[in-house]
Design a protein around this nucleic acid. Structure first.
Lengths: 130, 130
DNA sequence: GCTTGAGCTTCCAGTCACTGGAAGGCATAT
DNA sequence: ATATGCCTTCCAGTGACTGGAAGCTCAAGC
């Protein structure tokens, strides 16, 4: 498979796949013409990466996960721990966004939104909070 | 005020304040010794920026908001519109994270997390979803 | 056989919003 | 005179790509 096909099937842009090779996440073979020659295994790894990234795992998480994926002697507890840590990070992000949402929606509600310059949003934002 | 004090009071690292000057968000005066000489107005703007960034507005949003802040002939509807758009983006991010959380927590629950290599998390991740 | 166009290659630069570190000047206290 | 701490600029790096240029390869059409 050339990069175009594998990109299609894994759901990643070719640029990203080249980047993943650059940083050592995958090591596709090369054809005689210099083209990358992807095997089934590469495709699965790339699909893996696409899905893990979509779930918000960092590239470094992915590096560990791919290594575990390749390692037949892994313990599933290792994978579970990484996933749980990530779940915790997602929860933190959600909490932060909810708090931001809360503050901002109060501000938006309090603003007239007319042709006058008075704006509680700007007033609040420029307040120094010691 | 020197940069250290203003950093303290606005709640931003000095490095970030210099960066904000670099990209033209603020234009502090200079003392004869070359130090930045911040006025009250600069302080308020920096507090504004700190808070807006903490609420997740992009730098470009901030640029617009600061311009409106400086513009006494602004209409509050302009500010409200930007805030509402941002609120929508926050909602999108929350929805995305919740969906990620959902998928991931199902995976985590289905994984034994023992010393065996079998791991539904890895199995799922490597599945090609057409 | 020649051309055209798509697809592939590498390499360099840019994105966003900082952050770290080096090298050196300035201010104040001892 | 020196030590310290704050200030300055400049350069480089982060994470995870993304865009674009210049050039090679391949398959199809004439």
């Amino acid at each position: 498979m050339n990069i175009g096909e594998v990109a299609q099937r894994a759901g990643l842009p070719p640029k990203t796949i080249r980047y993943y090779e650059d940083i050592g996440l995958i090591r596709p073979l090369r054809s005689q013409n210099g083209y990358r020659a992807f095997q089934e295994n590469d495709l699965h790894k790339l699909a893996f990466l696409a899905r893990a990234r979509a779930l918000g795992f960092t590239i470094e998480d992915c590096r560990t996960l791919v290594a575990l994926y390749d390692d037949s002697t892994r313990e599933s507890s290792q994978v579970k721990r990484i996933a749980q840590e990530h779940l915790g990070q997602i929860d933190e992000k959600i909490a932060l966004l909810k708090s931001m949402r809360n503050t901002l929606s109060h501000l938006v509600e309090s603003c007239q939104g007319d042709d006058m310059p008075d704006c509680p949003i700007l007033d609040d934002l420029s307040t120094i909070t010691q």
